[in-house]
Simulated assay, not measured.
Amino acid sequence: MRDSKQPGRSPALRSVSSSARERPIVGLDERVYESTKLAALFDILVDQGCPAGDVLRNVNLTADEVHSPRSRISLADLMTACKNAIRLSSDPHLPYRIGTSIHISTYGMYGFAILCCPDFRKAMAFAELYHALATPLATIEFTEEDGVATWTIEPNARTATDPKVYRFVTEMQIGIHISLMRDIMGPSFTPDQISVAYPEAHDFGLPADQIGCRLSFASRTNRIIFRSAWLDQAANLGNKTTYPAVVALCDDLLNDLKSRIGIAGEIRALLLRDIANPPTLAAIAKLLEMSDRSLRRQLREQGISFRGLLDELRMQIALKYLRTTRLANEDIALALGFSDAANFRRAFRRWTNKSPSKIREE
């Protein structure tokens, strides 16, 4: 597939997106997610002989809480566990192994809905649109054109500050995708190509014999590419009656997730409308139909500041620009609402303890 050609969204994706709820915008430290992925990481490391306390070092969860359906973690907790895994294990295929240990049944109602999709294109569309229910350390996008289907994977922007964590999250997500695709389309599913946006490393990596396809490094994006013919097969476990009922339950789960995030999620959504010219707190209060005092009080109750939310979003966008584009610092500064590149560089160093040029080098 040529890098210069952008695949188009599938008709199935468009049809599902018309009924899907707006996806919540979650902060890195908000403990609103189930511990599904962390539990998979925990189990494999403990099985390899790593002490449970070391696996959960600096994670806001005890060993007894890891498998509890009532437990909630943040994306920061999961990233910390990934860093612990890198430190503790010498397994050369650890992230991929963790990913492939996660099956459709692991994901509860989200997984059941994917299984119930009446055809595989709807399954791809649903998986993308409701990905917020899967404790996402990466964004995923499904496209299809000219007989070729592609999953594009981009780890959370904050992982860009640590190249090893970026690689770990990418390879774990690739493992998850391959595992789930084999669960729903059959164990013989094999991609035609996997490309990753970083050079080959020697500490850990994807096992070529297990992925069963060509692997390329230092590509433009992280992608899993396969023939659309896989999507033309009959979805033997799909059910046209059950599917809409389960989607409605997943909508309820998204609404519950949004309520857990609270006012911070609503503010993030409003700030992202125009991050270069963000509204003031007073303007946001007016949009939310509340007083400035009430809005400030709700933020204090969540332990969040308005300035902190704005800085968090600017940092994430800056990291994404630095990792995935060739925009000059001056252009990034302008896109984020800074008066010049020098002010942007100072703010970026305050956010990440690194310079923009260091991120580009990594």
Rank of each mutant, 00 (worst) to 15 (best):
R345E: 11
M124G: 04
Y107N: 00
A81N: 01
N239S: 14
D311E: 05
S195D: 14
S35R: 01
N58Q: 14
R326F: 06
L299V: 13
P163N: 05
G265T: 10
L334S: 11
P11K: 01
Q48S: 13
R9Y: 08
L336K: 04
R345Y: 04
L75S: 02
T241H: 15
S305R: 13
G303T: 12
E301T: 12
I225D: 13
E301C: 07
R31Y: 09
E141M: 11
V66N: 06
L336N: 03
L61M: 15
S18N: 04
I86M: 13
P163H: 05
G308F: 06
R350A: 14
R23Q: 12
G111L: 07
L78N: 00
P92M: 03
P163R: 06
L253E: 15
E330K: 13
R31I: 07
F142I: 06
I44A: 05
M315Y: 01
A125R: 01
M181N: 06
T36D: 03
A282Y: 02
P136E: 01
R273H: 07
E34Q: 06
Q6I: 15
E171L: 14
A276G: 10
S305V: 14
T36P: 06
L270T: 09
T221P: 01
H202N: 07
I174W: 07
I140A: 05
A269H: 11
Y107E: 02
A134E: 00
F344R: 00
W351H: 06
A20P: 11
E312R: 00
G205N: 05
S339D: 08
P187C: 04
T159K: 03
M185T: 08
C116L: 14
Y110K: 07
D340C: 07
L322C: 03
I275P: 05
D209G: 01
G53A: 15
R2V: 12
N255T: 07
K354R: 15
A218E: 10
P207V: 08
T352P: 07
S17L: 09
D292E: 07
A157W: 01
L180Y: 11
L133T: 05
P244W: 10
R23D: 04
P7E: 07
F120N: 00
F226Y: 10
L254A: 02
L310G: 01
K37P: 03
V26H: 00
S105M: 02
A248S: 15
A218Q: 10
V196I: 12
W230Y: 15
A276L: 02
A134Y: 00
E145I: 12
I261H: 12
I317R: 09
K286V: 03
K164I: 02
A282I: 01
D3H: 10
S339P: 01
A157N: 05
I86K: 03
N222Q: 08
P92D: 08
P51N: 05
I178N: 09
K286G: 03
A157S: 15
R158T: 09
M315R: 14
R220L: 15
I102L: 15
P191A: 15
P118E: 11
I261V: 15
L271W: 04
S68A: 08
D64Y: 11
T152W: 06
A269M: 11
P95Y: 07
L257T: 11
K320L: 06
V26T: 10
F189I: 12
N343D: 12
R2I: 12
T221A: 15
Q210A: 14
K164H: 04
I275M: 09
K354D: 03
Q6N: 11
